Simulated scan of single mutants.
Amino acid sequence: MKAIAAAATGVAVLAVAGAAIYVNRSTSDEDQWMATTSTSAATSVPTSSTAVVPLAPRSTATPSSIASSSTEPVDNACGPTESEALTEALSQLPDESTTNRSWSPRSIGSNFDPCADLSTILVTIEGATGSSPMQALMFHRGEYLGTGTLDARGFTSIDYPASTEDMVVLTYRTGQSCTACDDGVTTSVRFQWDGQAVQMLDSPPP
């Protein structure tokens, strides 16, 4: 897999090797992004005006060990273990752009499955607090594809009951009155493997 394609309300966003390609939405002013850090050659892009933003190389060394948060062991007959997959993904992921901090080598949420068409591992930055940026690392049969969105977002979680073998559902919480408060707005965003790429079926919050 060399790219991630994201589509919501009729407009596609394709993440190609080492870059994120941004496409203005036809029905909304909201910007949609997908990011990937593959080192393979770029694939063809949709026929829309685009701006390519290359990803910077990761400035810190690859973590030597990973502590997984998975509660149940997963058969790795189809691909790498969760620790191996996370280590490989973090070796390609640049430091978080807002805080300039490296990503913690510990998963804070995961439904990783090397046999699944689509699964994810959530990570946050080193020294994180309750509102720190988080990223969803996407995997196809254990192979790292890229991040769910270009920009890291706080208060992100996996909707485990809604996720399937070929779909990851993330929940984003925004507008709460305090870090520990359960108020605010929750937005569910579905990412689905279509047989060739990942499609973003819903719009994330602004």
Rank of each mutant, 00 (worst) to 15 (best):
S40K: 11
D113E: 01
C78P: 03
V169T: 13
S132R: 09
L90E: 00
L86V: 05
E72F: 08
G109T: 08
G154T: 04
T124D: 14
Y22D: 06
L93V: 03
P105R: 10
C181L: 03
Q32F: 10
D151N: 14
A41D: 04
S102F: 02
G184R: 09
S26I: 12
G18Q: 10
G109K: 10
S64H: 08
E165V: 14
I66L: 07
T129Q: 07
R101Q: 11
T147H: 06
T174M: 05
A128C: 03
S48R: 14
Y160C: 01
V53W: 04
Q192S: 11
G109I: 10
T171G: 09
E96N: 06
S107Y: 03
I66G: 03
A8W: 10
S157D: 06
T36G: 15
D151L: 13
G18R: 08
L118E: 04
G109A: 08
N76I: 03
S83Y: 01
A3D: 02
C181I: 04
T174G: 07
L170A: 07
P204N: 05
V169Q: 14
C78T: 00
M134V: 06
C178G: 15
T47P: 06
E165K: 15
F112H: 01
W193Y: 06
T124V: 05
Y22H: 14
D95Y: 00
A197H: 15
A19V: 07
A180F: 12
A51H: 09
I4E: 01
V52A: 07
A116I: 08
Q192P: 00
R25D: 06
Y144I: 02
Y172E: 04
T174L: 12
S104C: 00
Q135C: 12
D95N: 08
M34T: 07
R153F: 11
L122T: 05
S38R: 10
P133V: 01
A116C: 02
M200P: 02
T120W: 03
A116V: 02
A42W: 00
M138W: 12
T129A: 14
D183W: 08
L93F: 02
P73V: 01
N76Y: 03
V45F: 12
N100A: 12
D95Q: 11
P94D: 00
L145P: 00
P57D: 01
A51C: 03
A35W: 07
S48A: 11
S203T: 05
M134T: 09
I108L: 04
T47L: 15
A41Q: 09
V16Q: 09
M200G: 05
S65D: 05
W33P: 04
R25Y: 00
C178H: 08
V123L: 06
R106G: 05
